[in-house]
Each structure stands twice: as structure tokens, then as C-alpha cells.
């Protein structure tokens, strides 16, 4: 599904990603861990085409397509979704209008007729239940006045509406209490199918108790330095990152 090869990327001329190689197959969940500043968010931003990041080398193919040649909105239509670390508040734009614009843009891209207002609202009602999102919230402006937990639930709600095949959860667990974390993770799991895959970026093992990864990667200074199964996350929770850094240093000396 997703194939990242020798990816180098920089922001404001500063190189952050220094040769990432990562393949994610259909149905797989990959967790990406690492210390602050390691490049986790840079990788997710590059995947969704944030204009501030410049890819200087390497390639990303998504379902056979050159992802880097696509605009952010086209990547979305192709099935990539990112749950933002800090969802943006958009005063004056109602959730309904926002989602309808998004859903119908995708339908247009796929050559489908736009949804009627009635059809759209029906779908919206159904999907809202997945993350127990209050109907009042969907009548408000996008994320405006939402609590931290509501914002993250709203991200998963949008994921439900757009039905992506590849989801990036960028620190979706940050700022969530245990109950909210469970609701968000349950929502994600309900949406997960055999075909859909995900990249889950997190600092903590906690989220991975709910969303079970097939692979865990450790990002260090712009490179994936270690890959393992779910047990790697447990080990990091236990021991931190220093032992991985030490291993890496030894490797480099060899």
C-alpha cells in the first residue's frame, strides 16, 4: 500500500528526515515512536503534503501512485487521512458545511454524484455515534470551543465520514484522559477493516494497549533505527530510548 524509500525532508532548510525506508502493507498497523524532535511529525506532515516541508530526496508510492506528485487534497481523495496532533479551530465554518464540502469533494474526485443534504445528514448521524460525538458539536464551528478530548473524537468522526484506507494518528492520545482515549481508540478500531492500514505516532505504550500494532518502529534523528513487534513498545515504556541510542552508537562505531 505505502512504500517510502530513502526519504529525506527538510523544513526551512533544516534536514529532519535523513533517509527513511518504510513499507506498510494492506491491513497493517505500524506504530512510530521516538523522542521529541526525532522527526515523527515531519514524516506524517510529509505524507499528507504539508507545504512547509520540502522533500529533498527519495520517493513515496501509495497504491502504485507517486504520492509526492499529488496535492494534499488529492492525497486525501486517494484515501490518506491524518488525525492532527492539534486540530485547527475554524470559526464561522460549521462542521456540517465543512464535512459536506469534504465528502462531496471526494465523491467528485471518484466520479460520484454529490450527496443530497438529506443523505448527508443521515450518514453524519450514523457516524457520530461511533465516537459518541454530541449532535450539538456537529452544529458548531469546526473545533471551536471543543475540549481537547472532543477535538480528538472529532478527528475520528471525520475519519469515519471520509473512510480512508490509510490513517495517520499523530499523537491522537495526547491530552486525553483514559475514558476519552478508550472512546477514540474504540472508534478507530470499529473503522478498521482488513484492507485499511495505519501509522500510529505516539510517545506512550498506553494507546497501543487499545490499538494493537503489527510493527513498532523507533525514529531517532531522522532515521528508523529499530523495528520490532508490539513488545518493543513495552520495552520502550520500561526502559526509555537511551538503550536504543546506545545500541545505535555501538553499531555506528562498528
Amino acid at each position: 500500500m505505502l512504500e517510502i524509500k530513502n526519504l529525506h525532508a527538510s523544513i526551512n532548510g533544516k534536514e529532519i528526515l535523513k533517509g527513511i525506508n518504510l513499507t506498510i502493507n494492506d491491513g497493517e498497523i505500524h506504530a512510530l515512536m521516538g523522542q521529541n524532535g526525532a522527526g515523527k511529525s515531519t514524516l506524517s506532515n510529509v505524507l499528507v503534503g504539508h507545504p512547509a516541508y520540502e522533500v529533498t530526496q527519495g520517493s513515496i508510492t501509495f497504491n502504485g501512485k507517486d504520492l509526492l506528485a499529488l496535492k494534499p487534497e488529492e492525497r486525501s481523495h486517494e484515501g490518506i487521512f491524518m488525525s492532527f496532533q492539534a486540530p485547527v479551530e475554524i470559526p464561522g465554518v460549521s462542521m456540517v458545511n465543512f464535512m459536506r464540502a469534504a465528502v462531496n469533494a471526494k465523491r467528485k474526485y471518484l466520479g460520484k454524484e454529490p450527496l443530497t443534504a438529506g443523505e448527508f445528514l443521515k450518514i453524519m448521524r450514523e457516524k457520530r455515534k461511533i465516537v459518541e460525538l454530541d449532535s450539538k458539536l456537529s452544529n458548531r464551528s469546526v473545533n471551536e470551543g471543543f475540549s481537547g478530548g472532543e477535538k480528538k473524537r472529532n478527528e475520528i468522526f471525520q475519519m469515519a465520514m471520509l473512510e480512508p484506507t490509510f490513517a495517520i494518528l499523530d499523537e491522537t492520545d495526547s491530552g486525553l484522559d483514559v475514558d476519552a482515549l478508550r472512546i477514540v481508540a474504540d472508534g478507530f478500531n470499529k473503522l478498521k477493516t482488513e484492507k485499511t492500514s495505519a501509522l500510529v505516532i505516539t510517545h506512550y505504550q498506553r494507546l497501543l494497549d487499545y490499538i494493537k500494532p503489527d510493527f513498532v518502529h523507533v525514529l531517532l534523528d531522522g532515521n528508523i533505527v529499530k523495528t520490532g513487534g508490539p513488545e518493543l513498545a513495552l520495552e520502550i515504556e520500561d526502559r526509555g530510548f537511551d538503550w536504543i541510542k546506545a545500541e545505535r552508537a555501538v553499531k555506528n562505531e562498528e
Binding site: V48, V88, I90, G92, A101, A105, K106
Partner: peptide, 22 residues
């Protein structure tokens, strides 16, 4: 906000329009 909307599949022009309209 523009980028957030684009990630959701809304074109840049449409996103600008929504913001101006709002």
C-alpha cells in the same frame, strides 16, 4: 486552517472560499 481543510479533501480554492465566507 487552509491546510487542515485540504487534508480533508477540500481544494485550496474552496478552502479559501469557506474561510472568507465564514
Amino acid at each position: 486552517a487552509l491546510f487542515y481543510m485540504r487534508q480533508r479533501g477540500i481544494s485550496l480554492d474552496e478552502a479559501k472560499l469557506l474561510l472568507k465566507f465564514a
